[in-house]
């Protein structure tokens, strides 16, 4: 297919990236991710439970790394150092896996990103050969700096993580998209299918979401809705919308051949 999403030289057919958290169980996680059609899925890196439930099922049993592109994240990290350490562990865990999602938070209540720490971590990670997809605020200057550092994709928030508030500043996103030479993906804040479609219509290369699907009343149904919304939004963007005007003297039906 010609309209592939290309990240760090690799092509993907799906422009919807999804998280794997907050589901009722692994069966539901798998069903929702299948319905979403996502090829790239985010995972978190956490301390292993020692000495308990040695045989408890793991996420990897339900979502084998051979079937998906894993995107290990740094969720919960509040410093560049912790984020870098986490992703070094992820790289070892996933057999020299390079593609990662960097996020460094600045505030536990809002989960707003700390862009200073994000930039510091991005510099280290790029130097160490990571392919960094970076979560950030919707500040166009910061987005450009992250691109200049060598990140492979920049992922501004639509609104705060887990808020479902939708796209609060389409104008900033548009500026980021227009000036970027790497894929721009909206990450965080999408609440429903129309939000995802709007992000794609703005020209985003893709959308990353977790809570919008996992916290829906029917996550599997919502995952399918998001898949369609991202596809519809992409096609709508490529097709090029008609110009807006307050009114039109040009009806869709012929003005000639009227009876009477």
């Amino acid at each position: 297919m010609s309209d592939a999403l290309v990240i760090a030289g690799k092509s993907y057919q799906s422009r919807l990236l999804v998280g794997t958290g907050k589901y009722a169980d692994f069966t539901q996680t798998r069903a929702a991710i299948d319905a979403s059609g996502a090829e790239i899925i985010t995972v978190a890196i956490r301390r292993t439970n020692i000495g308990q439930n040695a045989n408890e099922p793991s996420l990897l049993d339900y979502l084998p790394p051979s079937e998906f592109t894993y995107l290990p994240n740094t969720a919960g990290c509040y410093s560049a150092e912790d984020a870098v350490r986490t992703l070094r562990l992820a790289r070892e865990l996933l057999d020299d896996h390079r593609l990662v999602k960097l996020e460094v938070l600045g505030d536990p209540n809002t989960l707003y990103p700390n862009v200073m720490e994000t930039i510091a971590a991005a510099k280290t990670l790029v130097k160490e050969g990571f392919e960094v997809m970076v979560y950030t605020s919707d500040d166009p200057i910061i987005a450009k700096q992250l691109e200049d550092i060598g990140c492979v994709a920049v992922m501004p928030l639509a609104s705060l993580i887990g808020s479902g508030m939708g796209i609060l500043n389409p104008w900033n996103l548009q500026i980021i998209i227009e000036s970027a030479n790497i894929p721009v993906l909206v990450d965080a804040g999408v609440g429903c299918a129309s939000d995802a479609a709007i992000a794609m219509e703005l020209g985003c290369a893709g959308v990353l979401m977790n809570t919008a699907i996992a916290a829906a009343r029917d996550p599997v149904l919502m995952a399918g809705a998001m898949k369609k919304a991202v596809e519809a939004g992409r096609e709508s963007f490529l097709a090029g919308r008609m110009a807006k005007k307050l009114y039109s003297a040009s009806p869709s039906s012929p003005t000639t051949g009227m009876i009477g």
Binding site: G19, T20, K22, T29, I45, R46, L60, P72, A75, M209
Partner: peptide, 10 residues
């Protein structure tokens, strides 16, 4: 020592 694995996350 930190011993970690992959878990669900967004």
């Amino acid at each position: 020592l930190e011993i970690v694995g992959a878990v669900g996350g967004g």
